[in-house]
């Protein structure tokens, strides 16, 4: 009898939530996406950037490395002297800026995504192990992290890039190896707090193995903050890659990256502003898109976020 009364009122109370709850995760995610304006914008930007990276070869109107000394430093099409042949103008060697940005998307995105994946994986594993087991294991791993933190990362990257020939792979590895410590620290901190939650204790009291507890109880509960940090980190990595290229240590010609374009354009900033401005804009828009998308991801991954009719996720 009691059960009935309770369940009835429960159904009553959660009627609104129930409707949205019975939908699949995908539909719920999409609904949340539409609810959040920034999320929608971020999603669209990121999808576009990814598509551009994938189909760069088809989309680029010109060969990005092709010099055309008859058409150097042409302004964008809508300015005097510009032509629709080179929509965003050309650089000092007559290379099409638009094509270079399109092809450069690949490098920026590859470096951004994969070095974050690498750093994230290392950091996640080390952070979870250190946080969960504590004691000596934690001590050793965290001292390792500390010593990594003690080395200025830009110096480390410079040294490595001076020794090895800078290439896409080397860039990804070296950025990944310098960034994992941040993840390890954040993940460990999260694990430490989650470890003390009663549901972890409850699972232990049931007799669950440590490895299972980490997978079932700890990991899912840090994954949302982890993904959000990663999304932000993709953004900062794109900027880092740009800075390295700017220093001349990034991607080497004839490959193109947004950072390298910035470097090239620097000298012409006063006279031919479009050389540096458009790759800069590309970086800004992509980074913003990823950050917006990260916020949305956090909401989707939290089962507490409700889809509501009035708009605006809680």
């Amino acid at each position: 009898m009691q059960a009935n009364a309770e369940s009835k009122s429960e159904l009553n109370i959660n009627d609104k939530i129930a409707k949205s709850k019975n939908q699949s995760t995908t539909i719920r995610g999409l609904k949340l996406l539409l609810q959040s304006k920034t999320g929608t914008i971020g999603f669209i930007i990121v999808i576009c950037v990814v598509l551009v990276a994938i189909f760069a070869g088809v989309l680029a109107p010109h060969d990005p490395a092709l010099n055309n000394l008859t058409a150097t430093l042409k302004p964008p099409a809508w300015l005097d002297g510009g032509s629709w042949n080179y929509v965003l103008g050309t650089d000092n060697l007559g290379r099409d800026v638009l094509s270079r940005i399109i092809v450069g998307t690949r490098v920026s995105l590859l470096v951004g995504v994969f070095s974050v994946v690498l750093a994230g994986l290392i950091g996640l594993i080390i952070g979870i192990v250190a946080g969960y087991y504590g004691g000596i294991v934690d001590n050793i791993l965290m001292r390792l992290v500390d010593s990594f933190l003690a080395i200025p990362s830009i110096l480390f990257i410079l040294v490595v890039l001076a020794v090895f020939e800078p290439s896409l792979l080397v860039l990804i590895i070296v950025i990944g190896l310098t960034n994992w410590v941040t993840y390890a620290r954040i993940v460990r901190g999260e694990v430490l707090s989650i470890k003390e939650r009663e549901y972890v204790k409850a699972s232990k009291s049931i007799g669950t193995k440590s490895s299972e507890i980490m997978l079932v109880h700890v990991l899912p509960n840090i994954v949302s903050s982890f993904i959000v940090i990663s999304a932000l980190s993709v953004a900062t990595t794109i900027i880092l890659e740009a800075s390295l290229s700017f220093l001349g240590l990034g991607i080497q010609p004839p490959d193109v990256s947004w950072g390298a374009m910035l470097t090239d354009g620097r000298n012409y900033l006063a006279t031919n502003w479009w050389l540096a401005t458009f790759p800069g804009l590309a970086i800004t828009i992509t980074v913003l898109g990823i950050i917006f998308l990260g916020d949305w991801l956090r909401d989707v991954l939290d089962p507490k976020t409700q889809v509501n009719q009035k708009g605006g996720a809680k």
């Binding site: 939650r197 009663e198 549901y199 699972s203 899912p220 509960n221 089962p303």
Partner: peptide, 8 residues
Amino acid sequence: FSSLNPRM
């Protein structure tokens, strides 16, 4: 509130 895993 803390004895049940919020994601299960």
